[in-house]
Each structure stands twice: as C-alpha cells, then as structure tokens.
C-alpha cells in the first residue's frame, strides 16, 4: 500500500506512452513533378532542396461573373475538378459524389471546391450559376470557373494533370478524366481521387481533415 502513488505514476506513464504511440500522425503524399534547387546557406555551404509542383497563378470568372484567383483559395485546402454542364457521361456521378463531401464540410471555412468547365463555348457564368443552383450549391464555398479555352486546358493538363480534350465524335463533344484533386494551402497536390468511384470520394472526405491537421501546429 505504501507504493500506491508510485504505482499510479507508473500507470500514468504507461497510458501516456500508449496514447503517444497511437497519435503518430499520417501525412498525405505530395504529387506532381519534382525539381531540385541548390540552397546556399549563410555559412557559405549549400545543400539540395526539393521543389514540388504547385498550382500556378490563375484568374477565372466564377458563377457570379466575379473574378476568382489564387487569393480566393488563400489559406484553404480545396478540391479541383474539370467538367461541363451538359455532360452526359461521368460528370453527374462525379458531382453527386462530390456534393456529399461539400455537405460534410459545409461548416468548415478552410475547405473549398473548384470546378472548371471545359465547355468554353456554352458554359458561361450564368449557365454555371443555374447549374450550381440546381445542384444545391448556393454559397461561395464551391466555385465554378469559366475561362478561355487555353487557360483552362493548360491548367488542367500541366498543373492538375487531368487530361481534357474536345472530341466531336464523342457524345457531348468533350472528353475528360474524372479526377478530383486535393490541393493544400501551399498550392501543392496532395490527393488524386476517382470522382466516379464513391469509395474513392469517401476517402477524399477522410483525407481532408488529415491534411488540415498538418496546419494545426
């Protein structure tokens, strides 16, 4: 009985140890092309650092015909995708899945969504506005971007690494991949999910808090 305080202390330490080992955090990978640069230090020595691919500057019009750019997504993590409103194939299922994630994070101002239209001829902002309203998106959390053909197609292929193209033989005349891309607050790609696969999109929903946790410290 004399050693009771000691035992309690020991037990406390054990519990602490167990909890500590459990909270070993998981980090999301960083996708995209990499480059290296040589960093010169103050003491004259130098070392090699990795340069990760980042989303470059962009300016588009959103569904309210308001200019949006990188600052719109400053200090946010966001999910980007490419679609068009008259799409008869994979878009409805992508946005059905993404809508669930949107609902789940409705109260979290750090999370945003950015859907780029690849139908630069038809999907003008007011068409996007109608589409958003019918999808049940009525706030600024989910932005629908309209831009010049080259701007959208270049950022899709070079930056988000999503293949898009026009194809008059295809129903709906555009083809594109259904990837949802998770971008962190430093414009880096941290997740790629098949938007047509509800399991993959569920994983996206779980990865967003993991990514946000990186910034909590």
């Amino acid at each position: 009985m004399r050693h009771l305080p000691l035992r309690i202390l020991l037990l406390f330490c054990a519990v602490l140890l167990v909890f500590n080992s459990c909270t070993k955090e998981r980090k999301l990978p960083i996708y995209g092309n990499r480059d290296t640069k040589i960093v010169k230090h103050a003491d004259g020595s130098s070392s090699i650092d990795t340069v990760y691919q980042t989303i470059p500057d962009f300016t588009f019009l959103n569904q309210d015909s308001v200019k949006i750019n990188n600052n719109t997504f400053k200090n946010k993590v966001y999910v980007a995708d490419f679609f068009f409103t008259s799409c008869p194939s994979i878009c409805p299922i992508m946005h059905r899945n993404l809508k669930k994630v949107y609902e789940d994070f409705k109260g979290n101002p750090e999370v945003m969504f950015l859907s780029h239209t690849i139908d630069y001829k038809y999907d003008t902002p007011h068409i996007l506005k109608k589409y958003a309203a019918k999808l049940g998106v009525d706030d600024k959390k989910w932005q629908f971007a309209y831009g010049k053909r080259n701007d959208i197609y270049t950022i899709a292929e070079k930056s988000y690494l999503v293949a898009v193209q026009e194809d008059s033989t295809e129903k709906g005349s555009y083809v594109h991949q259904g990837w949802l891309i998770l971008i962190d607050k430093d414009r880096k790609m941290r997740g790629i999910y098949d938007g047509t696969d509800s399991k993959a999109v569920e994983k996206l929903g779980k990865d967003i808090p993991t990514l946000l946790a990186e910034y909590k410290k």
Binding site: I90, P92, I93, H95, R96, K99, A133, K134, L135, G136
Partner: peptide
Amino acid sequence: QNCHGQKAEGLANLI
C-alpha cells in the same frame, strides 16, 4: 445509372 443514380434518385434539381 450514371446520371439517374443507383437508386434512381436523380441528382438534386438537375436530374
């Protein structure tokens, strides 16, 4: 199913 959904539930007010 792609558009109308697994349970034929449609999609919001679009489909």
